[in-house]
Nucleic acid binder design. Structure first.
Lengths: 334, 334
DNA sequence: CTGAAAGCGCTTACAG
DNA sequence: CTGAAAGCGCTTACAG
């Protein structure tokens, strides 16, 4: 039989009110009484029922997290960042997936309405916009973790895609490359245009320009990277470097170059984006722009918990900077 | 203001009892009354509070999941498998991490005691044994997802490591390899001995044997794979194939062979274990024994939900079979 | 077929 | 410093 507050009260010969007071460290309890109650608590191993506390207080000490899918390469890092701060504050983490489309979103909307959590972390899903109305209406605190570079109506944390694109260009130029090709992400993603704009701006800054024929749209898969390279080699002008908008695409670029007999980095340098685990194990290992997934998770969780603790929503998004990770796919051999 | 059952009852001019009945599809409600109540529910968007229902029913419709860490390469697949079945049954998933050591386990034990969930999925953590006592005592239904090949005291789902090891050996022998080296996982992991035993048995079956000098203990990191190869090349007998006990180690093996100037697969064939995303992108792409992580997650979740629905605990563990994935690191060029 | 009442396990004014 | 009582939002005998 589970021990309840009533049982503890009985054994300590006090009221439930008093037990509740020592449980919550209210100051006005006689020292001796408090000690007696604490002894009973320790002896019985009593832990208040989360559900009952939640109902009485109107708060669950749980945060929800909705992710588009769990198998994306950087999701583990994001989750770990979130879990670390959420757990260290004694909150629970209720995880939901938008993996099964409308069904999952409906199920999720139920959880929101059922007040199953106090706040929500949202890793921006493809098309949840319609469903997000529920969130607004419910007045639930939300922080979005944005991997797409859209500008949501909620507080959000993102990374500096523009800056990352610029860093890629500068690195390539610094190591002597002049004819830069790009395999982008899907055109309608905000991060794609940010990465491309930053890349372009840095090239202009150096007094050079990008050849539009060397910009190919990909879709973030390695297949699209390989296809882009084969197309460039067949029909495009010469190039001595490729900036791929993510590492998977870059891996495809590497494969395409290998098939075509081009050497990396001697003939062509390759730079990716993300720094997923894969990047260190391609051949050659991939130079890339590290996306700080874990830090983004941590920052988002911290921001949400701050709101739950009463802070007002921040005016500005949190932007965690990218960083350049140099590996062999771009090292200058000259 | 949140709408409650009382509000619905008032608007529908019935008692809360009746509303509760139609909510839970009890049969004995007048058809017309039921319709009226449903209309009010639809009009107000009423969803019962999860916390209140849980308190009244003594059940949370949430399952807990404790994982050693979120950044392991195959964890995403396991999580997705679990999430898919848990969500499809309308359960919530409360995720906890043992990442911060004793602290996290304590925090987790509190959640268990606080009855925050109805059942638990446990991805076997390094040393949670001591803490697991809480679980037993609490009478909480538990299913463990076992990546270590230990034999826990709970119902569990695992994969057939022995069979996987055997498949690796048979594949290598079938493609003409005769001098088989192995880089194992840590010696005290059950999966290490299972994989090694299966491998060895298949070799014996073919009328051959393993040279003990060609068996090196690794620790599941790519560094250990690379180190093992360099050591073998320096001091060991010749070999024409390597079976690494996971893909990360295999990636290190590939790197070591490359540095030593050995060609894969011509000089040496390499087979890994797991089939993490990396495996398709090494150079050459890695032949490996696929560990069915997602299926394991699904199976475990299904089993747990069955128990929550009243099924007795199964006598036997669920063993999801491995499968051989042939890529270029082992294709016979002869 | 329907409702009043008790109960789930807590917290929180309120009164003393 | 302490306790009786009401309340959080549901469900479930019980009675009719």
């Amino acid at each position: 039989m589970r021990v309840t507050i009533a049982e503890v009260a009985r054994r300590a010969r006090v009221s439930k009110t008093t037990v509740s007071r020592v449980l919550n460290n209210k100051s006005d309890v006689d020292a001796a009484t408090a000690i007696r109650v604490r002894e009973v608590i320790a002896a019985t191993g009593y832990i208040p029922s989360a559900g009952a506390v939640g109902l009485a207080r109107g708060v669950t000490r749980t945060v929800g997290m909705l992710v588009p899918g769990l198998t994306w390469p950087w999701m583990g890092e994001v989750l770990q960042g979130v879990a670390d701060v959420v757990e260290s504050k004694g909150y629970g983490l209720l995880l939901s997936t938008a993996n099964r489309g409308a069904d999952s979103l409906d199920e999720f909307a139920r959880q929101v309405s059922a007040k199953a959590f106090d706040g929500l972390l949202l890793v921006e899903p493809p098309d949840a916009v319609r469903h997000l109305r529920v969130l607004h209406d419910s007045g639930l605190p939300v922080v979005v973790i944005d991997d797409r570079g859209r500008r949501p109506a909620f507080p959000w944390v993102g990374t500096d895609n523009r800056q990352g694109g610029a860093a890629a260009a500068r690195h390539l130029l610094r190591t002597g490359r002049r004819n830069l090709a790009t395999v982008t992400g899907p055109r309608d993603f905000g991060c794609t245009s940010d990465r491309l704009n930053g890349f372009h701006a840095a090239v202009l800054e150096a007094g050079l320009d990008l050849d539009p024929r060397l910009i190919i749209e990909g879709d973030f898969t390695s297949e699209s990277g390989e296809a882009a390279i084969l197309q460039l080699l067949a029909t495009g002008p010469e190039f001595d470097a490729v900036f791929a908008h993510n590492d998977l695409t870059a891996a495809g670029v590497l494969a395409g170059l290998r098939k075509a007999g081009r050497t990396v980095p001697d003939d062509v340098a390759v730079v990716g984006f993300d720094d997923i685990p894969l990047a260190a194990h391609t051949q050659p290992p991939l130079t890339t722009i590290r996306q700080p997934s874990r830090e983004m998770g941590e920052a988002a969780a911290r921001q949400l918990l701050a709101r739950l603790a009463g802070s007002p929503p921040p005016d500005d998004p949190v932007i965690v900077p990218t960083s350049l990770v140099v590996r062999e796919s771009s090292s200058a051999h000259w």
